[in-house]
Amino acid sequence: MSADSPSSHVAIGGATSGLTLNLHPLPILNISDHLNRSRLTSSGDIKIFGALLGTESNREISVVNSFELIFGSPDGDVDMAEASTSATRNTSQMLNTAFFDTRREQFKQVFPTLDVVGWYSIGKYPALEDVTLHKQFAEIIETPIFLLFDSEHQPASQALPVKIYEAALAEGGKDEDTKGKFVELVYGIETGEAERIAVDGVSRGGMGGEGEESTVVANLTTQRNAIRMLYERVSVLLQYITAVINKTAQPDHTILRQISAIIATLPTMDAKEFREELTTECSDVQLTTYLTTLTKQLNALSEYADKHNLLHPPPNDDFGGSHGGMRGGRGFAGGGWDLGGGRRRK
């Protein structure tokens, strides 16, 4: 933690821009994972930071993802290997803008609806290097937000180890009082159904088994919960539509239009192309099963033949001996040889 006093870089009662913040669970998990990996690979006091991805509509910001950043010269070359080693605290280090631009474009290709809305770091209170980094981000992003993850958070506490700030706005003639300081923002937690299931799975960890068994059970449990939740939602919609058809419930055209839009996005299950594709796939699966069974039977037959030949070797092909091509007193009756001797029948 910085040697500065806890409130030296926080403006008490500073004016904000009136942002409405919604924080999703994924950035918190990413920052926690980033911190744990840095602690395992670095020694001493560490300093990690990264960018926050989200959406901004009017004055509402939703933070839904994040990615890690590295220190370096502002126009330095991009070195992907530095991302896991550049965690040592150094107030003279600056944001590697080349690396930032590269990662920003990569995430933009995967998540075209998301953009960088701010950045994150660790600490109990904002430090001097946080002010320096925030000024660099402000040159790239318009009014960035700053998420501070408390690495010394006590597990017994019920509050999240997260505080979100923005640069303090000057009020009246108090520009010097708020210059280079942060003001804390109020934020809310926003999660979807899929995110709640994922967070629940992460919180349970390796419960229920060990090794691969635990992973398989956890995955199957997650899938079962997701399918059960989907089934419950569909059942509610089906009950509502049935009630509307039976005129036991008042139709809400807004809800009906939303249901119609959802159904329109689903594939048509009764189409001729679907039935042909399903029949072809079913035939391919059955044919593959038959071929597998046939291969196993042929392999078993081959092993049986090898064992039989080992116990009962085939007769000698040399018919010029005293036994007239017979072995062990026996001859080939079907080959034109008399069972009693070596002369050919007339």
Rank of each mutant, 00 (worst) to 15 (best):
M1D: 14
S7V: 08
S8K: 14
S8W: 04
S8Q: 12
G13N: 06
L19C: 06
T20M: 11
L23T: 00
H24G: 05
P25E: 13
L29Y: 08
L35C: 05
S38F: 13
S38R: 15
L40V: 06
T41I: 11
S42H: 15
S42I: 11
S43P: 11
D45H: 15
I48C: 14
F49T: 05
A51L: 06
L52M: 10
G54I: 03
E60L: 13
E60V: 15
N65G: 06
N65E: 15
E68P: 00
L69K: 05
D77F: 14
V78Y: 14
E82T: 08
S84Y: 03
T88H: 12
S92C: 07
T97A: 03
F99R: 01
D101Q: 14
T102R: 13
T102D: 14
R103Y: 04
R104G: 00
R104A: 02
E105V: 07
Q109F: 06
Q109M: 10
F111T: 08
L114N: 13
W119T: 03
I122H: 02
A138T: 05
I141Q: 12
L147S: 00
L147M: 00
F149R: 03
S151G: 12
S151H: 13
Q154S: 07
A156R: 09
L160Y: 09
P161Q: 11
K163A: 07
Y165R: 00
G172A: 04
E176W: 09
G180I: 03
F182H: 01
L185C: 05
V186M: 02
Y187H: 11
E190Q: 12
T191V: 05
A194G: 15
D200Y: 01
G206E: 00
G208N: 12
G209P: 00
G211H: 01
S214K: 02
S214D: 05
T221Y: 09
E232W: 04
V234E: 14
L238D: 15
A243L: 07
N246H: 11
T248I: 13
A249C: 04
Q250F: 09
P251W: 08
D252N: 14
D252Y: 10
T254F: 01
L256F: 06
I259T: 08
A261G: 10
I262G: 06
I262C: 08
A264P: 02
A264E: 13
T268F: 12
A271F: 06
K272D: 06
E277Y: 04
T279N: 10
V285C: 06
T288L: 08
Y290V: 05
Q297K: 13
L298M: 13
L298W: 08
A300P: 00
K307N: 14
N309M: 07
N316Q: 05
D318S: 01
F319D: 07
G321Y: 02
G334D: 07
W337K: 02
L339V: 09
G341M: 09
K346R: 11
